[in-house]
Design a protein around this nucleic acid. Structure first.
Lengths: 196, 196
DNA sequence: TGTACATCAGTGAACGCGCGTTCACTGATGTAC
DNA sequence: TGTACATCAGTGAACGCGCGTTCACTGATGTAC
C-alpha cells in the first residue's frame, strides 16, 4: 500500500464539494470537469479514478448540497431555540434576505438547481426530491402545534415553494429595487402564512 | 426585389417562436442553433441572416415568451370576467395544475427560464424583468379593491413567487404524489393570501 | 404571353474551440530488507 | 537507520463530438423586355 486509504477518500470529498459549489454558481451543464477538478487542486485526468462519469458526480454532489442545506437549516433552528427566539421567524428572515440571494454558491440548493434537475436522470432527481420533502417536514415542525398535521405540512410546502421562487426571481431580475421588493413581499407573506 | 419583404419577416418570426418553445423545454444553453432552425424548417446556416448571434435571438425569444405569457393571462382574466367568475380564482386554478406543470414548452416563461436568465447579459434580463413586474401588476389588479395599493402589490408579488417556485419544484421532484401535493399546497395557500 | 436576368433567402461544408472521456505515463509514498 | 522497490493517485496529451459561427454557393422568385 502507498497512501493510507483516507487520502483518496479526502480527495474525493474535496471534488464533490467543489462540484457542489460550481454547480450552484454556474449551473451543472455549464460546469466542466476540468474546471471543478482545478477547484479541487487537481487536473482533469484524475477525475475518472474517482467517478465513472460526470453524471455520477452530479448525483453525489446534489445529495451533498441537499444534506449541507439541511444541516445549515437545522443548525439555525437549534440556535434560535437556544436563544429563545421563534425559529420560523429566524429562518424566514435568513431566507428572504439579500445576503442569501447573493450567497449563490453556498446558498439554497433548491433555488439554484430545481430547473436543471428536472432534466436529469431519475437517480439524480431522487436525491433532490428527498431533500425537498425533508425540508417540507422540517419547516412543518416549526409551525403552531395547535394546527393539524395536514395544515402544517401544506403551509410548509407552500412557504418553501415561495422561498424558492422568490430567491430565483430576485436573482433573475436586473433592477435591484425590484429584487428587494420580491424578497420583502415574500418575507411578509410567508410570515402571514406562518401565523395563520 | 425577389420575395416581398413579408417573407423574411415571417421566417424570422417562426424562428423566434421555435426558439421560445425549445428554450422553455430544454433550456437555453442546451438548445443548439441547428436544432431550433430545424424546428422552423430551415438549416443552421441561414440563422446569421436573421440574427447577429445566438444571444441576440435569446433576447428576442425571451421578450416574445414574456409577451405571449402576458396575453394568455390577460385573456383568461377577460374571459373569467365575461363569465362572471372571480378572475383570481380562475387564474390560480390554471397555474397550480398538473396541466400547466406538464405544459413546459408553451407554459410559464418565468418558471422555465428564471434560473438560466440570471446568468445572461443585462439586456436579456431586462426583457425578463419587465415581464415579471407586468405580471405582478396584472395579479395585483385582481386583488380586493378595498386593500391598499401597497398591500395588493405585495401580495401579488408573493403569490407569483410561490407559483414559480411551486411549478419548478413540482417539475423537479420525481415522485408524482409529492409533485401533486406541491401544487395543491400552493393553490390553497395562494387562495388564502388572495382572500386576506 | 414568354424568356432572360438580377436578387437575396436559404444551403451546407468548413472553421476553431471546449466538452466528456481515455490511456500510457510519472513520481510521491509506505513497506521490506 | 538507509536503500530498493511496488503501488496507485494523479498527470496531460489525445480522441471524437457537437457547439456557435463563417462563407462561397445555389436556386426560387418578381421584374424587365
Amino acid at each position: 500500500l502507498r497512501y493510507d486509504k483516507s487520502h483518496k477518500v479526502e480527495t474525493r470529498r474535496r471534488v464533490v464539494e467543489a462540484a457542489g459549489r460550481r454547480f450552484r454558481r454556474n449551473g451543472i451543464e455549464a460546469t466542466g470537469v476540468a474546471e471543478l477538478m482545478a477547484d479541487a487542486g487537481l487536473t482533469h485526468g484524475g477525475f475518472y479514478g474517482h467517478f465513472p462519469s460526470k453524471e455520477a458526480l452530479v448525483e453525489e454532489a446534489v445529495a451533498e448540497c441537499v444534506e449541507r442545506n439541511y444541516q445549515l437549516f437545522a443548525g439555525r433552528v437549534a440556535q434560535a431555540r437556544k436563544e429563545g427566539l421563534d425559529p420560523i421567524e429566524v429562518v424566514l428572515h435568513a431566507y428572504f434576505s439579500t445576503v442569501y440571494r447573493d450567497l449563490v454558491e453556498d446558498g439554497c440548493t433548491y433555488a439554484a438547481l430545481a430547473q436543471e434537475i428536472a432534466r436529469h436522470p431519475p437517480k439524480t432527481r431522487e436525491g433532490f426530491s428527498e431533500g425537498v420533502t425533508r425540508m417540507f417536514t422540517l419547516v412543518a415542525g416549526l409551525l403552531p402545534q395547535s394546527w393539524s398535521e395536514d395544515r402544517r405540512q401544506q403551509t410548509a410546502t407552500a412557504m418553501f415553494s415561495m422561498a424558492v421562487g422568490a430567491l430565483q426571481l430576485a436573482r433573475a431580475v436586473h433592477d435591484p429595487k425590484v429584487s428587494e421588493q420580491i424578497l420583502e413581499a415574500g418575507l411578509s407573506s410567508a410570515l402571514a402564512l406562518a401565523r395563520g
